[in-house]
């Protein structure tokens, strides 16, 4: 799927804010994920590169560096558990394990219905309320314990059943 003209225009509009075009990459990748199903597919990489005057491999390198960018599809609810030091000490591993059991997929995978995926991310900057979970780009869920996982998953399922775009990864908006 090629980048839409609107999306290109949105990226181009950022150019004046930065000293050079390549610096727009991070913002551009956020826009792409918002509008293209939550991930950066290999199809759009050359287009992004051309727009910014860099090589496709430069885009791929950056996507691979940050856990917030995805080179593979994610679920409509991408459940990210911080597994950095504070969260780990306070039980983040157990949260990941319980998510894996509950959703019957491994960390890094997407459920068969495309609703959920589990990701592990670096410090979210909220160590005081560790462990921390972030669904898509939404508000943090704080002080999460493994036992909180079933309720969290149910809430998300309910939102999905209620329909609407709110909460679907692509339209989550905001950063």
């Amino acid at each position: 799927m090629p980048l839409s003209e609107e999306l290109k225009a949105r990226i181009t509009a950022e150019f004046p804010k930065y000293p050079e075009r390549r610096a727009v990459l991070l913002t551009a990748l956020h826009f792409v994920q918002e509008e293209c199903g939550g991930w950066v597919s290999p199809d759009v990489v050359p287009e992004i590169a051309e727009l910014l005057g860099i090589l496709p491999i430069d885009v791929e390198e950056v996507v691979s560096f940050y856990p917030m960018y995805h080179s593979d599809p994610v679920g409509r609810f991408h459940v990210q558990v911080c597994t950095n030091i504070s969260c780990c000490i306070r039980g983040a591993r157990g949260v990941v394990r319980r998510l894996e059991e509950n959703l019957d997929v491994l960390s890094g995978e997407v459920t068969g219905d495309g609703l959920f995926s589990i990701g592990e991310v670096e410090c979210l900057g909220s160590c005081g309320t560790a462990p921390v979970v972030m669904v898509n780009n939404e508000r943090f869920v704080e002080n999460v314990s493994a036992d909180d996982v079933p309720a969290l998953v149910e809430r998300l399922r309910a939102r999905a059943a209620a329909g609407g775009t709110n909460g679907s990864n692509g339209q989550a908006g905001g950063r």
């Binding site: 090589l55 496709p56 791929e60 390198e61 560096f65 856990p67 670096e122």
Partner: peptide
């Protein structure tokens, strides 16, 4: 020819080619 880059971060960093 720009075939090689460092992909990933931290202890997952690795040298690889595009695709």
């Amino acid at each position: 020819t720009d075939e090689l880059r460092v992909f990933g971060a931290g202890d997952r960093s690795r040298i690889a080619t595009s695709q």
